[in-house]
Design a binder for these strands. Structure first.
Length: 472
DNA sequence: GCATGATCATGC
DNA sequence: GCATGATCATGC
């Protein structure tokens, strides 16, 4: 096999050629390795050493004539020793001076990234770049349904830039296509369009959650030996989809979901059951069940596991407000993965950042006078659907979350995962750390060896109360 | 009444 | 068996 033996004007040829890199590192294609130590990113090295062209001479898309953008993206091994996405996929810097008056179809993102050749490699910190192993290749064309959602994402971001609000951009604003922070700590703010307020540098990116589904699909294609997601026949719509492509042509994802809730506003569970012809049975998760049935149009088992919610990193959470206006319970998130906390050095790449900078769909139930009667004559307190909204953590609170993360990281790296080390509710700092497990004996791996108690991330109940009240 | 630790219920 | 959403129990 000869280096560079492919037709760079032909998508299929480029893709077939890329398969040669799978299960290899660049070292296998490099004659004089010494020459390439230290310069350029891995993507550049792939272009130079594997695809055999001079990086400096190219002006536009990597394979412009074929309409293919080359992306190298890292994977890591997670706690279960499975391959997992390490980073969001960055798709070019946002230019605040220019990226606000173009349509989605005219944007750099669309023009460059509609079809990408994505090379997944296994990241290992101490290994020279030439020895990093490539695991998967996929020719990824953004599917039509995803493009409908991304177009709306693009409009949300470009609207903010157009209106001089670039400094308020947040990854949680959007579903799949996001504006992520880009640059080093301490970088100065840069000028934006239509405002004197500086804004942090940001780039167009596909979110971690989205990339996770790209990876899953890619693994499946590799198993089947097909490698590409471009299908000649229309694929059957999978069961667990919350909205249909046709609906997205008429309304945004958010709009569709919110409108599903409106008929049930101020209704309690009993009324909901009557309206939807279901039996009013008791369960501990009754309000989650109700919210889920509404959001999923009664067709989806758990919307949080639906394709769109997973791809967007969107989470639906139900909140119950007591008569006195307070929320009894704090809001729990997933358990802390101590290994991840140890391994991740950058706040913006951390799991906690992903969890807290994500979008939320909050469904609020409020306790009111009266009781509801369920199957078997069982009486329960009466809560009515009071409010439903999409929510993203404000930047100021994300700054607090960063301190929260740094504290957790310090505790974990010093191997002091004891309650007195973590933030508590009584510290009144928006978030706290508390146990969550099957019972006190439910342990997890300690990176320092042995096993430790399971703790998880929490929003203080007071924080939840405040964010609900601020929405009103 | 609240903070904190502990555990339940469900579904995959 | 485990993660996730949800809630309970105890002591100050």
């Amino acid at each position: 096999m000869l280096i560079g033996q492919y037709d760079r004007n032909d998508r299929t040829s480029i893709f077939s050629y890329s398969k040669l890199l799978v299960n290899h590192s660049l070292r296998d294609f490099t004659v004089d390795a010494a020459e390439h130590n230290g310069k350029g990113g891995l993507g550049q090295l792939v272009e130079e050493l594997f695809f055999g062209y001079d990086v400096n001479s190219k002006a536009e898309a990597d394979f412009a004539a074929a309409g293919v953008e080359l992306k190298c993206t890292p994977l890591k091994l997670n706690r279960q020793d499975e391959l997992a996405i390490k980073e969001r996929l960055v798709c070019g810097m946002i230019n605040y001076r220019e990226d606000w008056d173009k349509s989605f179809e005219e944007s750099h993102f669309y023009k460059k990234c509609l079809v990408m050749l994505i090379l997944f490699y296994l990241h290992r910190g101490s290994v020279p770049r030439l020895d990093l192993k490539f695991l998967f290749t996929v020719l990824w064309q953004l599917p039509e349904k995803d493009l409908l959602i991304m177009r709306h994402d693009y409009e949300i971001i470009s609207d903010k830039i157009r209106n001089g609000l670039a400094h308020t951009l947040s990854e949680g604003d959007t579903m799949y296509l996001a504006a992520c922070r880009k640059g080093q700590k301490g970088d100065s703010l840069i000028p934006q369009h239509g405002s004197d307020i500086g804004a942090p540098r940001r780039a167009w990116c596909l979110k971690m959650a989205y990339m996770r589904t790209v990876l899953e699909e890619t693994k499946r294609k590799h198993r089947e030996g097909a490698y590409t997601n471009i299908v000649t026949e229309p694929e059957k719509e999978k069961a667990e989809q919350v909205v249909r492509t046709d609906d997205l042509r008429k309304d945004s994802f958010d709009g569709i979901i919110l409108k599903r809730f409106y008929p049930f506003l101020h209704k309690d569970y009993e009324e909901f059951c009557r309206m939807t012809c279901r039996e009013a049975t008791y369960s501990k998760q009754l309000y989650f069940t109700m919210a889920n049935a509404i959001a999923g149009n009664q067709e989806v088992g758990n919307v949080n596991l639906s394709e769109e919610f997973l791809k967007a990193g969107l989470t639906m959470k139900t909140i119950r407000v007591q008569k006195n206006g307070k929320i009894k319970e704090s809001m729990s998130f997933e358990n802390i993965d101590y290994q991840e906390v140890c391994d991740c050095e950058d706040w913006y790449d951390s799991r906690l950042y992903e969890l807290f900078s994500a979008r939320f769909l909050f469904v609020v139930f409020k306790e009111t006078d009266g009781k509801i009667t369920l199957a078997g004559g069982r009486e329960e307190k009466r809560y009515v659907l009071d409010d439903v909204f999409f929510w993203t953590m404000p930047q100021a609170d994300l700054d607090v979350a960063k301190d929260y993360w740094e504290n957790i990281r310090q505790c974990v790296t010093r191997n002091t995962t004891a309650p007195e080390c973590f933030w508590k509710i009584s510290d009144k700092k928006l978030f706290h750390v508390r146990p969550k497990g099957r019972n006190a004996a439910d342990l997890t791996t300690n990176p320092h060896g042995g096993r430790v108690r399971k703790y998880c991330y929490w929003f203080n109940s007071e924080y939840v109360t405040n964010l609900i009240n601020e929405h009103k």
